[in-house]
Amino acid sequence: MNRTLRWLSRNPIWGFILLIFVFFSLANPFFFDLQNFENILVQTSTIGLIALGMTLVMINGNIDLSVGGIVALSASLVVDIQGWEVFAGWGDWQLVPAVAAALLAGVALGALNGLIVWWTGVDAFIVTLGAMLGIRGLVFVYTKEQSFYAANFAFSDFGSSNIGPLPTLAVVFLVCALLVHWLLSQTVHGRNTYAVGGNRQAAVNAGIRIGPHMMVNFIILGFLAALAGMTLASQMGASTPTLGQDYELWVITAVVLGGTKLTGGAGNIVGTLGGVLAIGILRNGMNLMQVPAFYVLVILGVILIAVLFLDRQLNRKGQEGYRL
């Protein structure tokens, strides 16, 4: 019992999830329903996929503001390229070059961000702030401000398909979560991720090549953001150039709610799952209760600050007190 309490005090977000889960179950007859739980999983999968990668980057002590642009670019690429005339006779195989191009774009932009952080030593916040504007510019240049519609129906069917009892997109998200969790907790790369974020100088002295290391994490994030863009496009069967705007803010909110520190060195995938689920359940539950979407914004903002406040009260005893 004591251990459970201590775990909750370090991960207050799961207590919060329990609270809103019970609340919505009692308050709305449609909430506690297997179909609805599947909905929540699908709705959170987009933000969730990006949040997985963002967790790695933030444990590194970096941040990435450019993920929204990558989402839009990969969505536009995958929807546009499958309609190219070159691939017209390919049947469903026309999805292969489209998906490959979208993922490649995500990986390349992640690598570019990582490379700039590595070579120039400019803070990741500034590098990706520039990239956020620039990649959005790329999207507009590529799409000429047009929306695209998916030419191949198999692509849009994928977004609403099931594997066994579960929606495919939820399975994709859960598999990715397992993989990243494994990477972070069981591999050398994962251990290095904590080491670099915890004490950069010590990591250098221990022989970790932190430049390439951080670049790998940016690449993983770019890949996952591109994947998220494709899942979004396949749900809509279309893409718009403004897709993914504000996603960086939602994702960072989710990761921070999950207990990852902006200063680096601490955090885990279980926490991030909690952060993502909290946002998903809150949005879904309030939607079912027909509360306008605006209130979710206010509640999320307040919760974000409250979690930070709680964390300070529970886990940072001995710090200087309040003084004006």
Binding site: L249, I252, T253, F294, G301, L304, I305, L308
Partner: peptide, 19 residues
Amino acid sequence: VARLNSLIVTLGMLSAIQG
């Protein structure tokens, strides 16, 4: 006064004020 991280505080305020 509460010494919370400014990035997260103002991120939360961004969302709350928009709401």
